[in-house]
Design a binder for these strands. Structure first.
Lengths: 134, 134
DNA sequence: CTGTATCCTGAAAGATACTG
DNA sequence: CAGTATCTTTCAGGATACAG
């Protein structure tokens, strides 16, 4: 599964049709990770989610929640009240995703300094090269 | 840091300007995770990477590698030969990212069945609802 | 309050052709 | 071989208005 560097990587190293590709939490989906974090502490209603997700529109929030519901990581519970109340929560499956997510988030936090330093170094080298050729 | 469900989520729950947001491996960047996996076994040259990354164009591969180099997770080594040879490899920082990434990938593999089942259930319910209202 | 319906924009990705 | 240069496409995301 992990070929060494001396042998060529096979063309079928990745399955282009692998359904994992379409898991929202892995692909684009700008807000998914943040929504997960907002639901970590317990159920939240729609308007409650909009507060910390500064800048999100109701359209995008609704779309994101629907995609997550589709994948079974979020549940939607409608209460027949007036005014209407809808609560979103992590499913058991969603909860199991928190751990892996935390690993990546922790990495980001721990290596933020390294990252910023790498970017500065990269730009310094760019400047040096451009300076010489000029 | 993790508010309970009974207290409201503060508007500053997330820092909109947090640089972590721009880490390629966390945001969009369709190919980043796959490129990481290709480099896991050791250094690879440009054309070698194109084989398993079925469908990627040289333009997008070059852009992706540059972004990863910028963030310090990939190194680029140019050998002064003819024909030219360039090798890409994971940096030490890049290697530390493999662990967290694996956690998410493992989750995807382990829960793929649950995911597909959730999607089917979702679509069944949709059909049921549409059927009733029709 | 919890959304949907439109329309629009910008950035990422793809197609194609070409260069040192 | 290892890219760059253009041009086109695509689509997630945003703005705005409105509905149950």
């Amino acid at each position: 599964m992990t070929p060494t560097a001396t042998e060529p990587l096979p063309p079928d190293f990745f399955d282009p049709d692998c359904p994992v590709r379409t898991v929202p939490v892995l692909g684009g989906k700008k807000w998914t990770w943040k929504i997960m974090r907002c639901l970590e502490g317990g159920p939240r209603r729609f308007s409650e989610l909009r507060v910390p997700l500064v800048g999100i529109t109701s359209k995008v929030l609704a779309e994101s929640l629907r995609a997550m519901e589709y994948d079974g990581v979020v549940s939607r519970t409608e209460y027949d009240e007036n005014p209407p109340r809808v609560e979103y929560a992590l499913t058991p499956l969603g909860h199991t995703l928190l751990g892996p997510m935390d690993a990546v988030c922790a990495w980001s936090r721990q290596n933020l300094a390294n990252l910023l330093e790498a970017r500065e170094a990269y730009e310094r080298d760019e400047d040096a090269r451009a300076g010489r050729s000029r």
